[in-house]
Write a protein that binds this DNA or RNA. Sequence first.
DNA 1: AACGTCTATGAAAAAGTTTTCTGCAAAACC
DNA 2: GGTTTTGCAGAAAACTTTTTCATAGACGTT
Lengths: 358, 358
Amino acid sequence: MSLRSQGSKRRAAPESSAQTSPTFQQDGKVGMKEIAERAKVTKMTVSRALRTPDKVAPETLRRITAAMEEMGFVPNSLAGSLSARNSPIVPVIVPTMANSIFSDFIEEVSLTLDRAGFTPIFGCSNFDNEYEERLLIKYLGWQPSAIILTGASQTPRTRDFCQRSGLPVIQTWCLPEHPLGRVVGFSNYDMLYQITKALQGWGYRNIGFGFLNTPNNDRSRQRRLGWEVAVREGGDEPLHTRAQGGELSLEAGADILRGILGRHPDTKAIAFGSDVHAVGAVLECKRLGLRIPDDIAITGCGDMGLSSVVSPTLTTVRIPGRTIGRECATMVNLSVVGTYAGPSTVNVGFEIVRRESA
Amino acid sequence: MSLRSQGSKRRAAPESSAQTSPTFQQDGKVGMKEIAERAKVTKMTVSRALRTPDKVAPETLRRITAAMEEMGFVPNSLAGSLSARNSPIVPVIVPTMANSIFSDFIEEVSLTLDRAGFTPIFGCSNFDNEYEERLLIKYLGWQPSAIILTGASQTPRTRDFCQRSGLPVIQTWCLPEHPLGRVVGFSNYDMLYQITKALQGWGYRNIGFGFLNTPNNDRSRQRRLGWEVAVREGGDEPLHTRAQGGELSLEAGADILRGILGRHPDTKAIAFGSDVHAVGAVLECKRLGLRIPDDIAITGCGDMGLSSVVSPTLTTVRIPGRTIGRECATMVNLSVVGTYAGPSTVNVGFEIVRRESA
DNA sequence: AACGTCTATGAAAAAGTTTTCTGCAAAACC
DNA sequence: GGTTTTGCAGAAAACTTTTTCATAGACGTT
């Protein structure tokens, strides 16, 4: 049931907010020239006051600072970056921002880069490599300081542009065989390999696999490979009919469950490449009257908020999004300064979190 | 239980990725000058080829396009925007990116603005108005085309800078009494007013309120007001001991539930200002052995993924994040062109979604 | 007193585009 | 057939800052 409301049309108890009080003395354009005039110096000294205040006489600095405050001066970063031949901008391209998969990562990158004086720009490729290419080229036009990309399945042109840019490039959420630059990630292969092994260790057999079905998704491919190898090592054949893909939604997870169970009623566990699918499957089991984990075990990947909320709670693989974000930001920072000395690939690992569903 | 794994140290089955193949003929700096030389024109014509191709002779255009392709030219947006005296950048400041509260909104704004040729920049204020002010001033330096802000509780300085910038300013997720510019939002007051009324209609009395406890959160304040008015209209007194705040986490939701129930065991329903809290409360009820909604009813706000996954499923208020995002982006687009003709405040409304918890 | 060094400031060039203005040839007009 | 318009392209200025180079004076040393 769902009641619709447009809210009251009369502005009932409108949201309060402080009235604006004019603080600044000047309207119209205010650049370094205007500040300089007011402070009786040249714009050169104004520039210095901002970037190397210790090179400016205290009294002069005071006058300049006062002028800036009074006139509400905001330095033009466009001009500054153009002149300095580099900008603090750091593009970060992720497949999606809507799902909470990457949201911890995004927030941490954002906060950490901002604190370090950079300006992150987030782009959303929608799991589409061509779109990612378009975004990258667009971002390259801003003369960024570094580039952060998700995954390893960039188009050749994307790779070329990265290489030719001469910028620090960081790939994340993966462990590529041929990295573009530095890497902060984990092994998608190993993740599914380990969780499948774990399922086997807990006594489950005939393990299926549910994955995110987007074109050119190297992370899904790696996860599938991990599942296949583990299944084979367990003495079974990783039947492709026991694996099924779907888009990123709860419904797709339910579909996958029904599909695999329909083709192979003897399936005792399904390892999903995403918590979203896994949760969808758990809910579908309830609808179908299947007991978890007795009739079938379910595992996910990501340890998103959902997984500890669903009942039964989800056994999953925790990906340390915040750590990845912080690590990426630090790496950008040090790479730009040129003092990065750590390994070119940082494996942040993952953690199997056993709950009730397996 | 939780097993820790760093993944295999040997790069087991490293993630595959295409090898880079050199596509471009030239390394080193390639600007319009270089393209111009190669195409036997001046950089002026190159500039025209990019922005007004119909003003360039077909044959000339062909030569220029070919040169760009061969040399992998990326126009310098810094220079372009500086010269054109405005940039396609549009800052969007939200309180948090980590929670999925705003993630639909963010993705939709990102996609829609990108398609319209803008470059959104997302900043995260962490529910801190001073930090928001800092971010805004930093972003203003990029000479943006417009500004999108969440909420109505900006500092006076923030408001001044917005006003003085002369830019289109859009506030969202609220319906401010004194808007800075245009608004795309809904009434936070009405949201809690309506859901509380609904609870009363469903027969619940002694209704409590749980809210997000961050300093200067106008949205929480408005929601609380809505609860108070509705409770009073229902003939009860909105006791401040029946309201409790907490940070944005499941645990805080559980705390709030215990707190309110501890002080007022006769409480028959709690309306939460956030799904996160509400879900935390639902889980806590299960731990405490309380039946929902028989012993106590719970409602949330936001209709995040969590709310339809928890058991019992959550009655909540759906906020149309994607719609808000699209509307904001369209408004930016039209405002910048100067052809926006719609109302200066768009109320997207909300929708009460009744599920099992009330 | 001559010299070198250091500090505080300024003048001019540079960054890579777009804007504005100008020029020229060919087409269109009457 | 001369004039106006149109289509295409170039030259120079502008955008606002940083970089680079220069200079004037203070101070210390020999």
